[in-house]
Design a protein around this nucleic acid. Structure first.
Lengths: 109, 109
DNA sequence: GATGATGTTCGATGATTGACGAACATCGAA
DNA sequence: TTCGATGTTCGTCAATCATCGAACATCATC
């Protein structure tokens, strides 16, 4: 996480957002974060190994979908709802509406 | 095109739509079709070979984004605007708003 | 029928992607 | 200071993807 890159609002690319959300697991994570709450990596109950989760979180972060914060050894993540809304109005909302049916089962531990 | 598969409205999958639109060339094609007009393959001025274009058109078709019609040896394509709107309300509109900036240059010949 | 235009399909190839375990770095707690 | 928890990074592997040219099928036209 040393090299956490968060693109600024104008740097959020549509194709990266779309391909980030095209993966069921990442879609599931975003669904879970859609309530606006900040979550810790370890609180996410995902059906993949932690190294795989780390890659997916990096993808979401680099795409500009999430913002990551470190606190000790823990990492917290939250959805960049406002940034996304201002960059692509209505996009996230319309995706979230249909997402649960196809997202991977991501719960809270 | 013998085996043209067009998913019905309820069979249009969000993840397939998103990954189909995550490619700049396909995004460009969809942008061009966004005016609702029906176009012929050959009228599309794309920076790839015809075999590559054929693959991309197949991807769009299978994802449920476009509908293809044969007429002699020619193939015509149009965007399934209405179907998409009823399946994922607002999705296409919000994507089209930001798409031109990132889409590959697809014009008319 | 022969020819040309239009798409599709078939390998082949190189790039990207998702996945894992192992090794590592960092920090907090015992 | 040692140990455990938390994430990252690395190397590997299999699968998918974008791309191309060549070969093919189909149809319209000459």
């Amino acid at each position: 996480m040393r090299n956490a890159e968060h693109p600024d609002v104008s740097g959020i690319a549509l194709t990266k957002v779309l391909s980030a959300l095209a993966d069921p697991l990442r879609l599931g994570v975003v669904c879970l974060l859609a309530d606006g709450e900040e979550r810790q990596w370890g609180d996410l109950d995902v059906p993949v190994s932690k190294s795989t989760l780390s890659h997916h979180m990096k993808t979401l972060r680099n795409a500009g979908l999430t913002r990551t914060r470190e606190e000790g050894t823990r990492c917290y993540v939250r959805l960049r709802t406002g940034d996304l809304e201002s960059r692509f109005p209505g996009l996230l909302a319309s995706i979230m509406q249909a997402a649960p049916a196809e997202a991977a089962p991501v719960g809270l531990r």
